[in-house]
Design a protein around this nucleic acid. Sequence first.
DNA 1: CTAGTTATGTAACAGAATGCAACAAAATCT
DNA 2: AGATTTTGTTGCATTCTGTTACATAACTAG
Lengths: 245, 245
Amino acid sequence: MAIPRILVVDDDPDMRQMMTQFLRQNGSIALPAANEMEVRSHIDAGRVDLVLLDVMLGDENGLEICKRLRREQDVPIIMVSALSADHQRMEGYAVGADDYIAKPFNPNLLLARVKAVLSRARRSASLVHRRNTKTFHFDGWTYDAKTGDVLSPVKVQVALSHRETALLQVLLANPHIPLTREEIATNLDATGEGQSPSEATGRAIDVLVGRLRNKIEANPKEPQILKTERGVGYVFAVDIAVSDT
Amino acid sequence: MAIPRILVVDDDPDMRQMMTQFLRQNGSIALPAANEMEVRSHIDAGRVDLVLLDVMLGDENGLEICKRLRREQDVPIIMVSALSADHQRMEGYAVGADDYIAKPFNPNLLLARVKAVLSRARRSASLVHRRNTKTFHFDGWTYDAKTGDVLSPVKVQVALSHRETALLQVLLANPHIPLTREEIATNLDATGEGQSPSEATGRAIDVLVGRLRNKIEANPKEPQILKTERGVGYVFAVDIAVSDT
DNA sequence: CTAGTTATGTAACAGAATGCAACAAAATCT
DNA sequence: AGATTTTGTTGCATTCTGTTACATAACTAG
């Protein structure tokens, strides 16, 4: 995983500020949120790797939010609370949190927990993701995640290389969200497990994108699907429909 | 029982790595898991002969997991722990573990325990008339583990060589999990008992895979079942249904 | 608007990984 | 033993993938 995006949910502005700042200094992207609405808008945008959720959220109940999130999304959650009593912790787990940490906490302990949860999530994803075999439809194209087959709008099989398929998967997982080259590279390599971060190599991603374009764009010179975001990276720019098989 | 499948549950990646590697070198198929969710996904998939369960699983409690597993499943469990105090051991047994071993442990001692528990389990299983002769169905094909017969989708018998059969077994035990050539080789040799002198030899696995493909793939040039994972190894890429005979 | 600067597209190349046919050694069968 | 089958090895063809170099395109400062 390139850079983890962490959603910091706390209704106290000072606390939010402190946590986001700390997380940013330690190499993650921290997104602040004060209530459930903001949480959802971030998560729906699809770029959250982990949620740090305060149990006490003013009027709202963090536990309830956690429960709802768990029911609907598959995002790791660490509960944060000023109450450290054991029964609180148990309650945290009961509603589906991945971890629980009590305020005030040792910053490094928080980091450690975050890392642990993230790595666990990554691994379990790779082990379980065959469960639901999904098929993606976009712009007339079809990608069957189970077989890896790609069908053109005229239902002709198109052969993608391994790397190209991996790229397509990364893109499909992040529609409409510009991804930097580094993010793409890391996610590509993350296929197996914590592999070597082959990044910093050069223009490999550019070339790879070009190759994928040649295969799935009607007019590669004028990409409609895989657009480039100058100064940033690339975006999967069309809508996706997902169907379970 | 051809090759025992052992689920290694530990939240420490290094420890997981070490144990799985050791077990594989000694003729079992080791499946790594970091948390209860992964444990369940493996067990539900029905391919686990034994669980090596660490008592300390980060924030999850191994004892609790053990208790739950015992209540729901009938799979042998060996608890592993850094704590060797007697009361810990007792607690391990209390929750239904079949055996208890303290970290750091003598590898050979672990092997001995594993074998002991497995043979006990097998014996008791046979008393209950639960046959372990399974038949695998995949992509229209049928493999009878008892007779070793392989039937094509049109019910024609296909003759596989010893080596090819062994390869098929290893693959069937690890569907959807990319295996390196070395892993495959080790597991192949582990069939009988002898050590693994044959690794590092060369491209034997590649050729063997090719031969199996020629026999079970509709179009060997474009494998649907036994796919290659470039830079990694090979994967059995279709779902498997297992039926008891 | 123009010239310079930076980012991106891409063809060509090279190294690595894989498929596979052909051969040789080993094992198994008669 | 001789024949047959199986299995590993080798060399070459093919495919895949990252790098490099140069061509364009997009931006910026004047």
